[in-house]
């Protein structure tokens, strides 16, 4: 039975699409078969983040309306054999499909894929309802900021109301330099407020911008964010992976002092 994961956040711009792209790519790299569904009808972006925008012919709405067969709308990834993207329609709006149609579509993908990952639109309206309808697992993405956490809390309430039992948290764009100065909430602060199991912590990393510019997810590559995303994939696949220590590589002093307390401080920024 395949796992249907919705990546959601409430607030826009916290990293839902980046997380979807990297988690999907990372799982494919681990040899799983994965389909990424862009559920953001009217404002699709998963295609550009994946670098597949030039290959779109048919989209999710075409499949639902019967304009094409399911296979025709699935775009094969450039690098990974088991990875496919189902793009959203760009010239339609969120109200043109229903949660029932989404459930039917997801059911038809279940035989073929180990993981079905849905990139949810921002907001709590119809688009959100469509994206969560067929999911059995949710990843809530937030950043350590007041507005993102407030919206995440609201979304968690709605996910619970939709009877999604498994809800995990990804904290994105953590800045250890700000945390050290006491000007950003820590991972523990966010966990204390939202009360969800932690799936991953992704540091604020310029490599994410570079990777998005190039249309190549950075998961598994040399960067801190790439490593963090790969750890998330491993945890999704059931492996135990310790959380990274982002206090490294901040300043020369932390590098020097890090040599002396290498094994004392294991994880948790």
């Amino acid at each position: 039975m395949s796992e249907v994961i919705v990546v959601t956040s409430g607030k826009g711009g916290v990293g839902k699409t980046t997380t979807s792209a990297n988690v999907g790519t990372g799982l494919a790299e681990m040899g799983k078969s994965v389909v990424l569904i862009d559920a953001d009808i009217g404002l699709r972006n998963l295609d550009v983040v994946m670098g597949l925008e030039n290959r779109i012919v048919y989209n999710l709405v075409d499949v639902i309306e019967g304009n094409c067969r399911l296979k025709q709308a699935l775009i094969k990834d450039k690098r990974h054999a088991g990875l496919y993207l189902m793009p959203a329609a760009q010239t339609r709006d969120k109200n043109c499909i229903t949660p029932e149609q989404m459930i039917k579509l997801i059911d038809s993908l279940k035989e073929q894929f180990d993981y079905i990952i849905l990139d949810c639109p921002a907001g709590i309206e119809q688009g959100f309802q469509n994206a969560v309808a067929g999911a059995n697992h949710a990843i809530v993405v937030t950043t350590p900021e007041v507005s993102a956490i407030r919206d995440a809390d609201r979304i968690i309430g709605l996910l619970e109301a939709n009877e999604i039992k498994k809800i995990d948290l990804v904290i994105n764009r953590l800045r250890h330099d700000l945390i050290r100065r006491g000007e950003m909430m820590t991972v523990d602060d966010v966990l204390d407020i939202l009360g969800l199991p932690l799936l991953g912590v992704v540091p604020d990393d310029e490599n994410v911008v570079i990777a998005t510019n190039q249309g190549e997810p950075l998961v598994g590559k040399g960067s801190m964010a790439g490593q963090a995303f790969y750890n998330i994939c491993k945890r999704l696949a059931g492996k135990e992976v310790p959380f990274m220590d982002f206090s490294k590589n901040v300043t020369i002093w932390t590098r020097v002092s890090g040599l002396f307390r290498k094994n004392l401080q294991e994880e948790r920024a």
Partner: peptide, 18 residues
């Protein structure tokens, strides 16, 4: 610290939201 302010504000805010 602004970290503490943020945390305190959120805790009160979320109670009324919930």
């Amino acid at each position: 610290t602004s970290r503490q302010i943020a945390k305190d504000r959120l805790k009160i805010l979320l109670i009324s939201d919930r």
